[in-house]
Amino acid sequence: MSSLELIGISKSFGNVKALDDINLTFEEGKIYGLLGRNGAGKTTMLKIIYEMLFPNSGAVHMDGHAIGGNDTALGKMFFIGEKNYFPEEMKVEKAFRLMNDFRKDFDPAYANRLADAFGLNIKKKIKSLSTGYASIFKNILALASNAPFILLDEPVLGLDANHRDMFYKFMIEKYSESPFTAIISTHLIEEVADVVEHVVIIRNGCIIRDEPRESLLDSGYSVSGKADTVRAFVSGREVLGTDALGGFETAYVLGECPKNDLPEGLEISRMDLQRLFIQLTNS
């Protein structure tokens, strides 16, 4: 079973510590959500995995071996980021053709099918693509690469709602046919909430959560009602944060959701991923 492992990765830019002793394992055949606020270290982490950046300490291992300039290990991954690293004058069709040169598992027929579905003109130069179509172009390369590990940094940047929906559908379809590992870094948490199986939350360069989505969602709940009642109820519990509106309050609590002994007038509900993320990363 293939795995991608980060061992003691630290990275600083000047005085800023972008990643601090990251230890993390990405297993084969899972869709990961890599979540974090702006500047948390998500892109830095993905770029270090793909050797676009180099850590100050630590190593990335593929199947138990340090990647360290190994073409075979790097070939098991494909990274797409916000920025475009393709020559600006290159046409989309040439990018597909060259991709076939570098990656023998690349499926050009599938890439062309996706280009048709998204309405991407493959005769166009990459530099002339809009932000949305540039994202579509990179997403197509990633999905058609058939790499066991796909690292997607803001894959839906600039995409309209219809194209975002299409992208997720194609990804799930592809994943259902032949599972791969996708690590999706995005700020659109609500949209990926139903797609990801495992969530990694990064804050200020440190991993604060690394667990299956369901178990993460089960780790907290929200309680709403009159402010006094809510405060009395949450007293002694681990409160992540509160929202107040008039005399009413909602408290976000970590811990197992109480099934009994609920005071009258209080409503308990499960937090969604975005709400939980906001509460975990607010401070």
Binding site: E51, M52, G69
Partner: peptide, 15 residues
């Protein structure tokens, strides 16, 4: 441009 492109293609620095 070739450095950026080849890195994007997953070509190691050694290669």
């Amino acid at each position: 441009s070739s450095f950026r492109y080849l890195t994007q293609m997953g070509v190691s620095k050694r290669t």
